[in-house]
């Protein structure tokens, strides 16, 4: 057959070759199907490490206990014992090195998350002692009268 008949074939083969070369260069070596197979497993293996190395911010109350054992014991024996320190004190991050002090949330908004009374008998919420934030000393901060580490005790002046 004549040469001009074959020419389109070379063009097509050239395109395929270019795609294969580009794929070889662009797709990372660790890209593959891995453990979960063809349907759900396609990924770069190294991305798992990215997520495993994500920074932990909340260190839990056990971390706080290391230095603040008195405070830990104080709250653990109270009705607020189930609330972890960092819910109000903010995430520990690298404390005490960085940051040296934590920002404590003493706002009414924090307390009324649970203590704004809602009449939901079919939920745990209905069993929590609560107030109406609009009528219960709306101008005052809760911590002026209530001691958050132990609500049974009076506020520290």
């Amino acid at each position: 057959m004549k040469n001009h008949v074959w020419r389109p074939l070379y063009v097509a083969l050239g395109i395929v070759a270019m795609i294969l070369v580009a794929r070889e260069l662009y797709v990372p070596k660790d890209f593959g199907i891995h453990e979960r197979g063809y349907m759900y497993g396609w990924h770069r293996k190294s991305d798992e490490t990215y997520w495993k190395n994500f920074k932990v911010k909340y260190k839990t109350s056990e971390y706080c206990k290391g230095c603040h054992e008195d405070k830990y014991a104080d709250i653990k024996g109270s009705p607020h014992g189930n609330i972890m320190c960092e819910n109000c004190h903010g995430p520990a991050l690298g404390h005490p090195a960085d940051p040296p002090t934590l920002t404590i949330d003493r706002s009414r908004e924090l307390c009324v998350r649970c203590h704004s009374y809602l009449p939901y008998k079919t939920s745990g919420r209905g069993k929590i002692r609560g107030i109406n934030p609009e009528t219960h000393y709306p101008e005052a901060e809760c911590v002026m009268c209530h001691y958050p580490h132990n609500p049974k005790r009076e506020a520290k002046k």
Partner: peptide
């Protein structure tokens, strides 16, 4: 266990790890 979000990803940027968690590859 049958994550539809992973199945529809055209580039393999979201995937399931061996322990069942579905992750997103931010660079991919």
């Amino acid at each position: 266990d049958n994550p539809p979000c992973v199945q529809v990803c055209p580039v393999g940027a979201t995937y399931q790890t061996a322990d069942g968690v579905v992750l997103v590859d931010r660079t991919w």
